[in-house]
Design a protein around this nucleic acid. Structure first.
Lengths: 200, 200
DNA sequence: CTCAAATCATACCAGTCGGTACAATTAACA
DNA sequence: TGTTAATTGTACCGACTGGTATGATTTGAG
């Protein structure tokens, strides 16, 4: 069975490039020209490797979740670290990424989720974005509800509200980071608010 | 001097409709079709009345600042109201707008500012968006720095950091609101964080 | 009533959008 | 070394983008 010409690009490398473009321009704003140029391939290669723009976006988004988002989440459950410190490590780690110079500022997901209201986002893209938005909410709530230390501090009483406060703050830093604010100033805000975390 | 046919639409009404479209879709996402349809006019009428898409956007944005943003700012300086209460009134008023059902959820400015990173926003649109982003930062900082009550509370020591914390939180509620969260839950977050406002 | 000025609707412009047909190129197997 | 399967580059598709030229319509002033 003769099997043909070799692929001249690495799919994973190309996917990371696509992720960077969506991170910068969102779903609608990213054109196939933007994508294929930065991926270093041309349209037919992209379509044969990923399907279409929507499928590429879904894969790029999943790649973001797996490689960028998940590592921050694991900091929340690190053993031998105090509850508040875990929370702080988690948030600082996220803020650091939001301000990193290697890619677009802010949060890939927050940016693309803001496009959902337009009604111009295709179905599967919408689905993964909505799921990704619910995930941290649930995770924070469960953390506040089940963590032994959090229970001892009485933070489990308002687990959901406390979780939403954390999430709200991080969405705020994402937005501020996208506007180009310094990392140090966001860290200072996080520090302040964590310090006063009665939370209630 | 004969002077012709009457305009069949009200410019201000049309401008408000355009504002609603940009609020929903951002600058790039809002097409002339979207705009003219919701404005109830056709393209030549739009171009003769407003210039082009960019000029329409600048006017719509200025309209947003004047009619939507400014009123919230005045709550910060209301006489006979305690400092923390003014801050709370201000934030609650903004959150209420971010969740209002009459128009798109979230913040018009935060949405369009997030498009700046793409590099696809024309010059004058970019300028007004950047100015509008700096304004609240300055205003909060000055409030913390100069308000008699804030000085008495020692909040003037970290005026800039405190101001940025407020702004960060409100950008967060804007993002959460856009995702469709309930107003009551955001109010709860604001309440909690204002309560613990040592701020430091 | 006439005529000039302003707005209206239609139809069009070049450029770009996401997506593809097709043929030239490349490589592994027989 | 052919043969065949896969990838590549080019050139194209209809639909839609922001923006306009044009002529019909409507108005007020003389």
């Amino acid at each position: 069975m003769a099997s043909g010409r070799k692929k001249s690009f690495d799919e994973n490398t190309a996917l990371n490039a696509a992720m960077a473009v969506f991170w910068q321009k969102g779903y609608v704003g990213a054109t196939l020209m933007d994508l294929t140029t930065r991926m270093g391939i041309n349209k037919p290669s992209m379509y044969s490797a990923f399907g279409n723009k929507e499928a590429l976006f879904v894969k790029a988004t999943q790649c973001y979740i797996d490689t960028k988002m998940t590592p921050h989440m694991e900091l929340l459950f690190e053993e031998g670290v105090a509850f508040k410190q875990r929370l702080k490590n988690h948030m600082m780690s996220i803020v650091s990424m939001q301000c990193a110079p290697e890619h677009a500022k802010g949060c890939y997901l927050a940016l693309c989720q803001s496009e959902l209201v337009s009604g111009d986002i295709p179905e599967q893209a919408e689905q993964i974005l909505k799921e990704a938005d619910l995930m941290p909410s649930k995770l924070y709530t469960e953390l506040f509800k089940n963590d032994a230390e959090a229970i001892a501090l009485g933070l489990n009483k308002n687990a959901e509200a406390n979780g939403l406060s954390i999430y709200t703050l991080l969405k705020g830093t994402a937005s501020m980071a996208r506007s180009g604010i310094d990392k140090s100033q966001l860290e200072y805000s996080i520090d302040s608010i964590i310090a006063g975390i009665s939370i209630h």
